Structures are given as C-alpha cells and as structure tokens.
Amino acid sequence: MTSELLVADIGGTNVRFAIASINDENDISLNNINMCPTENWLYLEDAVNDYLSHVGKRPARASIAFAGPVNSDLVTMTNGTWEFKQSELASYLNMEEVKVMNDYCAHACSMPLLKGDQLVQIGGGEVAENGNMVVLGPGTGVGVGALVSVGDKWKAVASEGGHVGFSASGDLEKEINRIIADEYHRVSIEEMVSGRGISNIYYALGIINGTHNLRLHPAEINKMASDDNDPDSVQAIKIFSGMLGSFASDMAGTFNATGGVYLAGGVLPKLKDFFLDSNFREKFEENEKLPFVKDIETHLIMEEYPALFGAAAYYSGMFL
C-alpha cells in the first residue's frame, strides 16, 4: 500500500515542495516538485495552499522542514521573516496532521537513504557501521544536523551549530577575521562559511591585496573565478573551502560522527569543481586534538532535494 503526504523544505531564500509517496517497504518517491523564492509569500500557509491548489490535491498529512529552531509552539525563521504556531498549522492547512522539524533534522534523516551518484566522496576515510553521522550545509546560513544511532533506529538531532564562534587558522584567516570583526559584534561561522561568507572573504581580500573589492554576490564571484580566473575570486573560494574543512572537523568531533560527514546546502554544488580541488580535506584532518577524524569519510551531497527525502523518511519506522 502506498501513502502520500506533502513534504516541504522551507529556507531563507527558497521554498521547495513535493508530494511524497511511501510504500510498505519505506521506498520514497517525490512528485510534483516545485521550487520558488521564499519572498513570494508573506506566510507559510499561503505558500502551501498555493502549491496544493496548483497540484490539485491535498494530502491528509504534511512533513515540513523549516530553517529555524523548532523548540516551541512558535517557530521563527532564522534568516527570514516567516513565523507560525505549530499547533495551528493542521487547521490552517485543512489537514489531519502536520509535523514540523528543523531543516537540518530533515537533511540528517536523508543520510541513510543516499547512495551512488547522489554522493561524491572527498578524500579517504571509512564509515563505521551504525556510527553517528553529521550533515553541514552552507547556504543562506549554515545548517547543522546529526543522526545518532540508538539500537536499530536513528535519532535525528537539530542544531544551530552555524552560530558558533569562528576560529581562524593561519595568518591569512586571522587577517580576514580581523577585517570582518570590525563590522560584527561577534564573528560566527555563518559569517565565513555561507554564501555571504564568500562575499565577506572576497571583500576582505580586496583590502589585504589592495584590489578594493566590493561585496559581490557569491554567484558573481564564482562566475569571475570560472570565466576569468580572477585571482581574488579563486582565492576566496579556496579559503572558504578550507574554513569549511576546519568547521566540518569540529562538528565531526562534536557529534563523534564516525558514520561520516555529509555536505549539503545550496552553495557547494555551484562551486563543485573548485571545491573538489580545494584543501577542504587537508583542513578537515589537521586538528591535532581530534586525530580520529582522519579516519572519517566526507561526502558532498549531489542529490538536489535531500531535505524533501528526509522529511518524507521522518514518517517511516527508521527514526525515534
């Protein structure tokens, strides 16, 4: 028997919807996938209702991944304006049940499902059977989620780890941090390892190298690196990649992620060629306080909609 539910991945920049079909073996397929800018709507309920009107069906259940803490009835977007009360959603959407989870809880729930060309391994390492896993995602902000092994099931753990403090490694990173710190009360990982992080790094390099760079959109920086081999653009992406490697190492240690570290988010697939040729893995392995991370596999997620798969999987019997 196959059941259907609405799944959604609500981010600060884009919203993604699909109708998920799940059979008795917990095989998941996504249909009617749609992605639109979040700013098209003032409220989550309006975005959902517009999508369901478009597809012409309204499942009885929904699983919604949301870019913000889901610790209370009132849920607020970290890098956006949307907010809602979980207790009111089912009524507003005319559904029997609506589950809401942090978006990187949903990413975490997708990890046991991903395989083959949905992943690209970066460097060496190996996966410990039933080992904890962590997923990181540079995008509008930085998402962090984990799966903790509990017997024969998994427990998804939400995290706002993207807001921990940034720790510079090496003289150049320290100089970049000094420049960015002049504009922030506290420099978090998100100011360096995200879309705007690339812009911040590029801007700081303009001061350091005397090229006086503006804060360009990361897509423009990537284009200049790819098309023109612009030195500051190429260097900004490489520095960003190394910073991500250090942060990924810290999170691997935090969650004892012997089952692997997975990289998601909207930024990395666009930078794939530069990223895979970067010093990410070298920086991941350099922490002398965490020598065991050298044995952990790291993967770039190439699946376009991992959070939608994870939101659907949350209804399966795999998770506590």
Rank of each mutant, 00 (worst) to 15 (best):
L5C: 13
A8T: 11
T13C: 04
S29P: 09
L30M: 05
I33A: 07
C36S: 09
T38Q: 09
N40M: 07
L42R: 13
S53C: 12
I64T: 06
A67N: 08
G68P: 00
N79C: 06
G80C: 13
T81I: 09
Y92P: 02
N94R: 07
E96T: 14
H107T: 05
S110I: 01
G124K: 09
G124I: 08
E129Q: 12
G131N: 15
T140K: 01
V148T: 15
G151A: 08
K155L: 15
V164K: 08
G165P: 07
A168Q: 05
G170T: 01
I176K: 00
I176F: 02
R178P: 01
H185T: 07
R186S: 12
R186H: 11
R196T: 14
R215E: 13
H217A: 08
I221M: 13
N222S: 11
D227C: 11
A236S: 06
M243Q: 09
S246M: 06
S249Y: 06
S249R: 00
S249E: 09
G253P: 06
A257F: 03
V261N: 06
A264H: 06
D273C: 14
F274S: 14
L276P: 03
F280H: 02
F292P: 02
V293R: 00
I296D: 12
T298K: 00
L300K: 07
I301D: 12
M302K: 12
Y305Q: 08
